[in-house]
């Protein structure tokens, strides 16, 4: 099954903690059922973004790391379920 992201967040120029804060903000605005792709070169994002996704009640569909470009790409889905709306991440 292919997951084409509806929202793409390019954080490759951002330093920690901005990629995680931008992800958190984007997740709060993401409607249920939609997906978000986040690209970052922040090495700590591989720890922090899964945590913020979990805390927001969303699902981390995939995480890929490209050693050539030192970029991590996260595909995140806001689930369609009670309590999974934007308010749930607050």
């Amino acid at each position: 099954m292919t997951h084409a992201p509806e929202v793409v967040l390019d954080c490759r120029e951002d330093a920690c903690p901005i990629p995680v804060l931008r992800t958190k903000e984007a997740l709060q605005k993401l409607p249920p059922g939609r997906t978000l792709e986040v690209m970052t070169k922040d090495p700590m994002a591989t720890v922090d973004i899964p945590a913020v996704v979990h805390k927001a009640g969303a699902t981390l569909v995939s995480m890929k790391e490209d050693p050539d470009t030192e970029t991590a790409t996260f595909l995140i889905r806001r689930d369609v379920s009670p309590g999974s709306g934007p308010q749930a991440s607050r």
Partner: peptide
């Protein structure tokens, strides 16, 4: 030091 903004989680 490197960024430690989310230290409580880590």
């Amino acid at each position: 030091l490197p960024c430690n903004y989310f230290h409580p989680w880590r």
